[in-house]
Design a protein around this nucleic acid. Structure first.
Lengths: 206, 206
DNA sequence: CCGCTACTATGACGGCTGTCATAGGAGTAT
DNA sequence: ATACTCCTATGACAGCCGTCATAGTAGCGG
């Protein structure tokens, strides 16, 4: 996640960004508020000022930020593809993670996944925030699919499938310390996705 | 995860089981050792006796247990299916989670996923244990697929795809508090999986 | 009875957590 | 200058964490 998008912003946004960043590595439990302010280079006193709701509020906003970020990425993916295909979009979504894994050696996870694992049972508001983040992510993907002539009825379902698969493969890849799972699912799922586009100007034989 | 399989066992196995159970709910960070012994009805003093490696060892063994458990489930699924198909196996894997979600109202997650999210960066041994658990799970699935006439080359890849998808969909389902994501991926991925079985006694046209 | 092993009991320790109380500094409008 | 709002600083609090030290009990072979 590019730090450029947040470097010049105010302390508040930097803290939200830093929280998301740290949650990616060690989960919510291992992410202390003191760690967040240190990582953001922000004053500690600003915590109770900007986040009177405490850690829960900070985590929820980090999750929301991650959802909007993912949605923005998808929009940029489709905008940057000359000949957009579902498999191409999926490959781009996967590549974002494989790149990081090959660059850093070990990948961080998804902050939304971390919030679900650590807070879904304890904090109803965080669970809702995570659901909203997934929805914010699913929306643009489904819209991109319909723009590629995928029937709207299936677009939503396929978007859910794509995000589920990426999220799970990322889990396996982190465990293995290897991008294998990610590249595998990209290769196996691609054809299925492309098969869902309705033929234009020609009827599928059979 | 059926408690029957562990109720009569010794305190040691009960603690490992309880650790896995609690990790599923709140993640590793929120799972204290005191909680584990309380949940297991085990003496606190046994902790340092059976797990001199501390929490890390306990978590690693819980992850290993979960991997073996998942592998056993798969074996029982295929054994119980009259006409085994890849989509049927996948549906059974998914149903295990939807059942729990509909029964309890809110689903717990996968302990292996929890370990990856919370420990992958901090503890190399736990990361390895999680990778082993995924491997232990992938193996029986791939073997089941080859038994259904899926070419061995693809079986391994499809097993990875199936587990990734289940794991990710479970994440989304927990966030939404609804089985939608799980049922959706089961419906969408089924045909693809069945399409991978090589036709027997007939050659695929084209 | 002794000695040995397997297991349990319990209390304490240092460290870290999120949260709060309190106070200080800047900027600005009146 | 006053008063007010926005932001920051800092120290303290109670509580939980994993770990360890120490002592205890049960069982059994000698």
């Amino acid at each position: 996640m590019a730090a450029d998008e947040v470097s010049g912003r105010g302390p508040r946004e930097r803290m939200v960004f830093s929280a998301a960043q740290l949650m990616r590595r060690g989960g919510v439990g291992a992410t202390g508020m003191r760690d967040v302010v240190a990582h953001a280079g922000a004053p500690r006193g600003s915590l109770q000022h900007y986040f009177p709701g405490g850690k829960e509020q900070l985590v929820n906003e980090a999750v929301g930020w991650a959802g909007r970020y993912a949605a923005g990425r998808v929009a940029r993916f489709v905008a940057g593809m000359a000949e957009p295909t579902p498999s191409g979009l999926f490959a781009a979504m996967v590549r974002q993670w494989t790149d990081e894994l090959e660059a850093v050696g070990a990948a961080s996870g998804c902050p939304v996944a971390a919030a679900v694992v650590d807070c879904a049972d304890a904090s109803e508001s965080t669970r809702t925030a995570a659901a909203a983040a997934f929805a914010a992510w699913t929306g643009p993907v489904a819209r991109a699919l319909t723009d590629m002539n995928v029937p709207p009825a299936r677009a939503e379902a396929l978007a859910t499938l794509m995000i589920s698969t990426v999220e799970g493969a990322l889990l396996m890849a982190r465990a293995e310390g290897d991008a294998r799972a990610l590249t595998t699912v990209a290769r196996e799922l691609g054809p299925l996705l492309d098969g869902a586009v309705a033929a234009v100007g020609a009827v599928d034989r059979g």
